[in-house]
Design a protein around this nucleic acid. Sequence first.
DNA 1: ACTTTTTCCTGCTTAATCGCAGGTTTTTTT
DNA 2: AAAAAAACCTGCGATTAAGCAGGAAAAAGT
Lengths: 232, 232
Amino acid sequence: MDCFNCNNKNCIIKRNCHLESMKPFIAKKSTLNCKKGQNFIIEGAPVHGLYFIQEGKVKVAKTGLNGKEQIVRFTTNGETIGHRGFGAGQAYQISAVALQNTVLCNFSTDTMQQILLNVPTLTYDLMTFYAEELNRSETKVKKFAQMTVREKVIDALLYINRKYGNTNGFINVQLSRKEISDFAGTTEEQVIRTLSGLRKDKLIETPGKRICIKNVDLLRKEISEHNYFIDS
Amino acid sequence: MDCFNCNNKNCIIKRNCHLESMKPFIAKKSTLNCKKGQNFIIEGAPVHGLYFIQEGKVKVAKTGLNGKEQIVRFTTNGETIGHRGFGAGQAYQISAVALQNTVLCNFSTDTMQQILLNVPTLTYDLMTFYAEELNRSETKVKKFAQMTVREKVIDALLYINRKYGNTNGFINVQLSRKEISDFAGTTEEQVIRTLSGLRKDKLIETPGKRICIKNVDLLRKEISEHNYFIDS
DNA sequence: ACTTTTTCCTGCTTAATCGCAGGTTTTTTT
DNA sequence: AAAAAAACCTGCGATTAAGCAGGAAAAAGT
């Protein structure tokens, strides 16, 4: 599968691959198949350029004290993983793990460097991507400082629901309570307690580890004071 | 004062202003004098392009629940304020307030758009800036989720000390305890209590509202488990 | 279908943080 | 220099969140 046949319309490479100046670089793309659970970016290791998800789901995290991990982002088809590193040549402080079998596209650091210096519209797109992510991340800092545990869990559920979608209310991804807590910024027990509470309030259902959101609007309403404008 | 005489070596504009392609744009720069306390970027208002600090100090914040503000960054000479907005034309969700009398350079959204599409090295520099800030912000998310109040306050003090420097240990900026707490992600009282504790431990001195760091290394050591590699 | 393993759940205890209230010091204004 | 305002400090009770432990349920493996 090459970029021209790919239908990830929102992929930064795809959006620019019609350009004459991109042609020599697209040939240098390599493809990687990841099994569920595979840790294809290891924190502290040298950076292998940028990854793009052709098909699949990935969690991006930073490891903290006592190995406790903070998930900073969930990603899916067409999205970018592995900012920084090109240029500064510095070790990159994130890890990335496939949540299910995933096909990745990769451009090496050298190739990325060449692309960014020769394809201005792509550089512009990547700049916009980082600016948006920065905005989202700064909003998350604010939320972590101000939200209660229940609010943080609701916010996390709505984000995951938006990112991965649902079928009949069932969120289209298998996450453990631990993973939800690592994203929401609390503990596994607190996530479990909050889900129990939401279940009693008839806002969700949780058969097994699957989660079904019964009423998105009521959940949104409960955190609306924290989200004046943006979905982040 | 134009860009050629400016000595902010780390300014993104300055770094690129020798280029032929920058000439027509540099003329379009406007300058703005801000009094201490002036709120020159208002949250929710339309974006007026990018600001660069020629000389001064500025806090960048997001307003949350009940008007509680989260300071996301402190900035000084040569640094950029006002990411996002160009392109999407969206309202920009941050506010910026001068901490002292400050001279700002401004390029309008239109001019920035032109620059970014015509000066690839500048676009690349701005991309790198956002990527680094994103990395810092994601690290901050992790810290907020995992640090104790004392650790967060120490981390904040060290950041402010690095950013604004010190003379004989006295940090070169006048911040209230409230502002420190709005940055550290806790309350004014907790900051005061932590500063009292640090004073008793002979790590700092606090004559009036000024703060003098007696022992940077010991402070660093106390949060070292959270900062394996980077100063953020 | 049974066993093993993993994940999920809940009650209880402990610890950390918050928020109020009232007083003191520092800074600013007149 | 005195008065007013702002900022700083501390004790205490209330709230919230975290951590432990043991059991129940679900998922995975044989």
